[in-house]
């Protein structure tokens, strides 16, 4: 049995470079986005569809942060926001279920596309599943 270390090393290097490129570009975009007017515009834009799902506008910032940054990177904002804003029990449960199915959509999709996945299918099915799960849950909670 011969182990080809060179094959492992070049593969590892190639993957690391690819991931680093994605991470650096995303960090720059987040850095600019964080303090821009876009943040407030996004908050207003997302309010209407959220209401249809049964999530009040108190959870807007939680949802935007989770969707774009993800749960681990966005945790500081998520925890801070949940303590400051007056989210109802329904808001918390519905946004937690939505975000646990569909979060960090930009980063997750890009890194899988980088190794060959179909990004459109990934994005569309996650969004659809999260919408379905939240709709069902909202109906049951309201009964």
């Amino acid at each position: 049995m011969v182990i080809d270390i060179f094959h492992s090393l070049t593969g590892a290097l190639y993957l690391t470079l690819k991931l680093s490129a994605i991470i650096i570009v995303l960090t720059i975009v987040y850095e600019i986005y964080e303090n821009s007017k876009l943040y407030r515009t996004a908050k207003q834009l997302i309010g209407v569809p959220l209401k249809k799902l049964g999530i009040s506008s108190n959870a807007s910032i939680t949802m935007i942060t989770g969707l774009l940054l993800g749960i681990a990177y966005g945790s500081a904002i998520l925890i801070k926001d949940s303590m400051e804003s007056k989210m109802s029990y329904t808001d918390i449960i519905l946004s937690a279920v939505f975000l646990s199915i569909c979060h960090a959509v930009i980063e997750d999709t890009l890194i899988f596309v980088a190794i060959g996945a179909n990004g459109f299918i990934l994005l569309a099915s996650r969004t659809a599943l999260a919408l379905i799960a939240v709709t069902i849950l909202n109906r049951t909670l309201n009964k």
Partner: peptide
């Protein structure tokens, strides 16, 4: 890869 991406994305 896409199926794994979907499962792990969730």
């Amino acid at each position: 890869i896409t199926i794994i991406g979907l499962i792990l994305g969730i």
